[in-house]
Design a protein around this nucleic acid. Sequence first.
RNA 1: GCCGCUGUAGCUCAGUGGUAGAGCGCACCCUUGGUAAGGGUGAGGUCAUGGGUUCAAAUCCCAUCAGCGGCUCCA
Length: 745
Amino acid sequence: MPTITLPNGDTKSFDKPVSARDVAASIGTGLAKAAIGAKADFGSGGELRDLGSPIDRDCRLEIITAPRPNQKATADALYLMRHSAAHVMAEAIQDVLGKDVLLAYGPPTDTGFFYDMFIPEGKRFSTDHFDAINARIAAIIKEDRPFTRYEQPAGEALPRLNSEGNKYKVDNAERALGLPSSVYKGPKAAPVASTSDASSLRHSVTPSLSFYATGQPGKNWEDLCRGPHVPSTARIGAAQVLSLASSFWHGDENADRLTRVYGTAFPTQAELDEFLRQKEEAAKRDHRVIGKALRLFHIDEDVGQGLILWTPAGSVVRKELQTFIAAELRKQGYTEVFTPHIGRLDLYKTSGHFPYYKDSQFPPIVERDALNALADAACSCSEMLRRVEGVSPRLAAGINQRTGRETIAPDRVLPDDQLIDGFMLKPMNCPHHAKIFASAPHSYRDMPVRLAEFGTVYRWEQSGELNGLTRVRGFTQDDAHLFCTEDQIPAEIQGCLSLVKTIFNVLGMKEYRVRVGLRDPDSGKYTGSKESWDKAEAACLEAAASLGVEFSREPGEAAFYGPKIDFVVKDVIGREWQLGTVQVDYQMGPRFDLSYIGPDNKPHRPVVIHRAPFGSMERFCGVLIEHFAGAFPLWLSPEQARVLPISDKSNDYAARVLGALAERGLRATMDDSNDRVQAKIKVAADLKIPYLLVVGPRDEENGTVSIRARGIQKDLGALALPEAAAALAAERDTRGETSLAARFA
RNA sequence: GCCGCUGUAGCUCAGUGGUAGAGCGCACCCUUGGUAAGGGUGAGGUCAUGGGUUCAAAUCCCAUCAGCGGCUCCA
């Protein structure tokens, strides 16, 4: 006798078990027609299910519908369609390539779905097959075959899967049943069995497995699957295969290598086309492509992977951005410092960076004399490593005493004369800044001390991770460390957030969100007292809430030394980019034995806030290149205006125009090549120069320039030279709030 | 780091075992023009690097390096 509560609060009672389809039909035929699935909540959260699955208990029920025309699909609807589309794509692939392609795992994702599969040895699968596969996908959708669910007892289903010879499906089935895997022997083999009470889990799991046939069981294509699916293939709308990649079974690099086939599905072909158009648009904005075309930066094999050479044009963008940020920092009471790119190994042993994170650092720079001495003594490499990574008894005593926690393995504590000294390229700026703080006594009256540095750091990113400007091995953080009292934490976090807000606004990045990384309540890995954490987390959450943008709490995402706030911005075409963070750190004070004198005339530990709200200049510039598609606002543009004489008869006047622009400090050039003006415009347009000032005899006579603005494909009209120069300077100085082009609007 | 694909002129790319190619860019010449490419001539290449197969390798094979797409990672 289920009583069903609908999203609007209405209830409906039935005298026998019903399906969501029945419920939808009882409400209206329109709803029943539009329904593609349901979300039922029996008291433990909403759960997507098939339209036809039986409901025998009271629940809250939401009917998931396909979107009406001109309406966006809900996330739940897309989930159902894409999960279903993954089956259709898999069937299409098996039709094209053969049944010996073994299917492994095919979930929906944020933008589509993928299916991991094993392609048998000797079989080729390439993008050449895509047309055939897409044709099959379209045909299957058109056939409108029902997704038919049936269950089979585990005792029958498991042997059946085994006999089909697909170990990946056997593994899926075993995991679904809560059994330890008989075929996969990796680190992530049996996550369920590792929980505290495996036996109760066994009982709670249904002893049967579900399959979905795309059509009639036994007749049409079918797949082991938990579901749910849309009622029939036509309800998927439009789907297609997109790309191929490789993956590992269970993400375990020692396990089988699988082929991951990406695809996507949308309710209508128009939406799918729009998605493809956006992908194309995104590809055109690729900062690596634009960076090359506009000569913004260069990566040279001889210099090294992931090391950016900023060419003159790109240096302008980076420098302007940095100047802008630095001016905002000064307004907020930051003081600027400079520190070197390397520091002694002991410094990083104190900070804890070395050797714990040695895999993500450049190897140490060892002093020549020490190396020679070791070579003379025929020292082995492993011995050398031990001596580089070792810690002196003095340092060990200090670290243990200060933190009261860290245990240094006894075999790492070596007598001084065995240790090899050396330097490290700095992976972070904080140790240097801590030493600056510690170099002078501090009173609570001086606090907070805000040390800012565009500090360049070096990290050994895995080679496969490197990517243009967004993932590099040497980068300059917009770094600062705020040494403050606990009471000052909220205001300082607030300050960081307001800085971010100011700068994002000027750059037109209106949409962004923050993630607040909090403790994992079940873990004991964190340093600092519970009270401190409570306060710091509250401060982060409060600051995030006050920002007036979307924020999420992410338990377990805190660093071990304190909570953090991450910034995620959306660019103009809606892609999200993770930029910088603000992190509260209780660890650094004790480690570097930092103190300030409080009102009680006693020393106190400062808390340190690390903040690099834009991450790194490299990454941020990369994001901006894509955000603006290389068409930077005037103040950031490498070349702000170009003077185009229509023939060399006007070159002298053009030079005078250029002089007037230079007097205003504008970055401008003139094109005195013997091209025609049409060609000069084409060249300048390709370089995305904001303004072109065309000058000919007419202009010379009137003392004017003819103005053409980027993106507006016509002559806007003439303006007196001094007026035009002043307007350009004003557009720069207001960072676009006033603009020359707007005068002609 | 792992897997796959790719590497030819400054850039974008063609060239599948037999003399190294195109467009753009660059240099020079002609053209002197009013808003998205006027015309001509020319320079420019260790075909990523190292080995191998072959009478003969840009082309086939192996290794290395780098780029791309993923996977894994990111204090």
